[in-house]
Structure formats: C-alpha cells, structure tokens
Simulated scan of single mutants.
Amino acid sequence: MAKRALIEARDEIREKNRVIEQLKKTISQMRQRVTVNEEDEIVRQFEEFYV
C-alpha cells in the first residue's frame, strides 16, 4: 500500500515537472514578444490569479 502511494506521488511529481517546463517555455516565448510594461501587467495578472 505504501509503495503504491509512493509510485503515485512520483508520477504526480513527474507530471507537475512536465507542466512547469512547459510553462517556462511559454513564458520565455511570451517575453520575446512583449514590452517591459506589458510584461509587468502579465506578471501582475498572474499573481492575482495564482497567489
């Protein structure tokens, strides 16, 4: 039972790491397209939503 829980936790961590890597790529692409003011607004909106 404990082994199964560890395997499930490992799989969940791997999936979250994949999501994080994709978000990093998206952020990098977005940074190439926006001005500093636009970037500040995007960060502000992100913080409102997630923090």
Rank of each mutant, 00 (worst) to 15 (best):
R44D: 10
S28W: 05
R44Y: 06
I13G: 01
R18C: 06
E15Y: 06
K3Y: 10
K24P: 03
F46K: 01
V34H: 10
I20A: 14
I42D: 00
E39S: 09
K25P: 01
Q32W: 03
R18K: 15
R4L: 03
M1I: 05
I42F: 14
I13N: 01
K25L: 11
Q22K: 15
S28R: 02
E15R: 12
M30E: 03
R44W: 03
L23G: 10
D11R: 02
V51N: 13
A9T: 05
V36K: 15
Q29G: 02
V34C: 05
F46Q: 00
N17S: 05
K25Q: 11
R44T: 03
I27D: 01
E47T: 03
E39R: 14
R4E: 14
V51W: 09
E41V: 07
T26N: 13
E48T: 08
Q29L: 08
E15D: 11
T35G: 09
V43A: 04
Q32C: 03
T26P: 00
E38A: 07
R10N: 13
A5M: 12
V51L: 15
R10W: 09
D11V: 07
M30W: 02
F46P: 00
F49K: 13
K24C: 02
I42L: 14
E8F: 04
R44L: 08
D40F: 13
A2Q: 11
R18V: 08
F49Q: 11
V34E: 04
K3C: 02
F46D: 00
N17M: 08
Y50V: 15
D40P: 00
I13C: 02
S28F: 04
R14H: 06
Q29R: 07
E41Y: 10
I27S: 01
V19W: 08
Q32D: 12
V36F: 10
L23W: 12
E47H: 02
R44M: 05
M30Q: 05
F49G: 00
E8N: 15
K3V: 02
I42S: 00
E47V: 08
R31Q: 11
R10D: 09
L23V: 01
N37S: 15
E38P: 02
I7Y: 10
K25T: 08
E41Q: 15
N37E: 15
K16N: 12
D40I: 14
Q32T: 01
A2F: 08
D11Q: 11
Q45A: 04
Q22V: 10
R33G: 12
M1W: 01
Q29C: 00
M30V: 12
L6H: 09
A5F: 07
E48W: 07
K24G: 08
